[in-house]
Design a protein around this nucleic acid. Structure first.
Lengths: 179, 179
DNA sequence: CATAATGGCCGAACTAAATTCCGCATCAAT
DNA sequence: ATTGATGCGGAATTTAGTTCGGCCATTATG
């Protein structure tokens, strides 16, 4: 058997810096991950095998976490979107609340700073189902109150974008911060 | 303005009812859209061409809106996630606020019912960038105040799930609603 | 009640893309 | 200047995507 000696990359995904071409690749694949490597290569200025190599690297490094079908919520009968803020008594109620992960209606669970403790994004068939989920939340020990924000219309909803705004319009009425 | 005709497929593509096999297909493709039609067919009990036909139909009907690469936010230097609630003076300030769509940091824009008017999901490189975005929001006429909830930890974040919880645990302490 | 028509599936053939291989150029470190 | 490593491109190979024709089941129709 082969015995690995000079094992350079043990714990570190050798996170090679993401260069502009990688970012372009990510931008293309976020829009449409079904295109061929030939077309991907053409769009970013690479040959098909080179583009393929880049994508493999991005997947290995974890930059591309998955390739996923984006579903229309209406098509699967989940037209009601809501954000639920949860206040808890005490600290560290997260493990108990994580139990709601098993419901496919729950899409996001975050802990947040601000006047509330946790924040859920949930998508249900109707208000009855939302009520059922809220009832389930109140059954969790430590949950003191919730506030739900029911979405009326969604104007934008998209995955993580690879681009970054480098220069923000300077708010001239403000002093310059030290950091 | 809108003239109501009996146009069946104005808002609705001729959505043939989604049967259990379709839902299984969606479930598989949400998890991993890179698998072959051979494997997809095997998982849902169909031949490769039959699975292919189903997927084509789901895409045509709009049930599958896109196939997209899911990016690790840290890999693209956007570790700061925040939800921004916006209060506006008056009504219908949406068009103006839609201008922030051009910033790739903005991932979602909703109008919500509750004590606030709009809700944004934004992901930035750091607090400076978040401040820059907030400053941009305050420059929008009609915006009276914002409240930001900065995410400390994300425990769950996933795309729309095709499954639906059919039976919610009945809250026994409640009366039965009429509807 | 029989029959035609439709829709969905399968197996096989065909086409296109993914993947591998190898030589070459570039850059960095010695 | 030399060496090693890294990334790229072109061609060949393997694998998957796609099309085609026939079969079966369900539903509409005379």
């Amino acid at each position: 058997m082969d015995v690995e000696t000079d094992d350079i990359q043990r714990n570190k995904p050798p996170t090679r810096e993401i260069d502009p071409i990688d970012r372009k690749i990510l931008g293309v694949l976020v829009e449409d991950a079904t295109i061929s490597y030939a077309e991907l290569g053409e769009r970013v200025g690479l040959s098909p095998p080179a583009a393929h190599e880049r994508v493999k690297r991005l997947k290995r490094s974890g930059a591309i976490r998955a390739t996923s079908a984006i579903i229309d919520p209406r098509a699967v009968k989940k037209p009601l979107l809501a954000f639920v803020h949860i206040d808890t008594r005490g600290w560290g109620k997260t493990p108990e609340l994580m139990a709601v992960s098993k419901y496919p209606e729950v899409e996001e669970i975050h802990t947040v700073a601000g006047d509330t403790c946790m924040l859920l994004k949930v998508r249900t068939e109707d208000t009855r189902a939302l009520e059922g989920l809220l009832a389930r939340l109140y059954d969790t020990p430590g949950v003191t109150s919730t506030r739900s924000y029911v979405v009326l219309s969604t104007y934008l909803e998209r995955p993580v974008q690879p681009e970054i705004t480098s220069e923000w319009p300077a708010p001239k009425h403000m002093a310059n911060p030290m950091y």
